[in-house]
Amino acid sequence: MGTQQTSKRSGAGTQPDPMLVRPFTVRRVRRELPDTTTLELKSQADDAGMAFLPGQFNMLYTYGVGEVPISISGDLVKGEIFVHTIRVVGAVTRAIGKLKQGDTIGVRGPYGGSWPVEQAIGSDVVLVTGGIGLAPLRPVIYYLLANREKYGRLVLLYGARTPEEILFRRDLEKWRSRFDLDIQLTVDRATGSWRGNVGVVTTLIERAAFDPQHSTAMVCGPEIMMRFTALELEKQGIQHDRMYISMERNMKCGVGLCGHCQIGSSFVCRDGPIYRLDKMWSVFTRREL
């Protein structure tokens, strides 16, 4: 593991003081699910420092309430805005969830490393995700589709708790209508009119069509889901050095100075949050590390 970076990053140096918050305007609000919203944020100064890599996050601040790290869920090519998808889980995300068009929000970032979209060129790409974990992977999907010819088969395996909790339905339907991205959805339990897969997301892996010898897997979800997904992907023949995961820890500063997000010798905010699995494996199952 260690502090070695697995991928390119940007953001460093674009801000003179990494502790300083930049005011942004909420340009658009979209309610995704009862507890999940997507915000489009536009800088109130200039558009400098808006470049980001898929997988990077911003620290989002609501006036007087607090700050939380949230992955960017938008498209790289829309360079003048940040898109974030936020699920209400605490006081700050609740405050963010109440923001309306025209409100101001504070931004620090983007911070952290990226998903290995460059390293995956020429291989099949398998994305495995669950719940809100689809949001940090959405920039990857945009990127892969925009550069479709550079990749082999693209597979997106997505699990949600119930059909009602499937995120980005419109995107999923749109992507499904393309025939160059294989999307498989599953839910933990369903009632009513659901006729799709039922079972955890790991059950989709065995059925999916990809070449395990020439695949890059990107896995985003709760740790327990990523651990079992890694086992299943390994069973199918993908090596640990071709699997990438996204870790989540308490973050206060976002730039490796406050200490909170450490996993062993790694600062998740600065050295992660995306890790190649073989670099995280030795500590992945250590309890309370």
Partner: peptide, 21 residues
């Protein structure tokens, strides 16, 4: 065994916690 493992995972309600950063 496969069914048992999948059932255990379902019990864990793995999507309940946010994976968002």
């Amino acid at each position: 065994a496969q069914q048992l493992e999948a059932t255990r995972l379902q019990l864990l309600d793995i999507y309940g916690n946010s994976a968002n950063k």
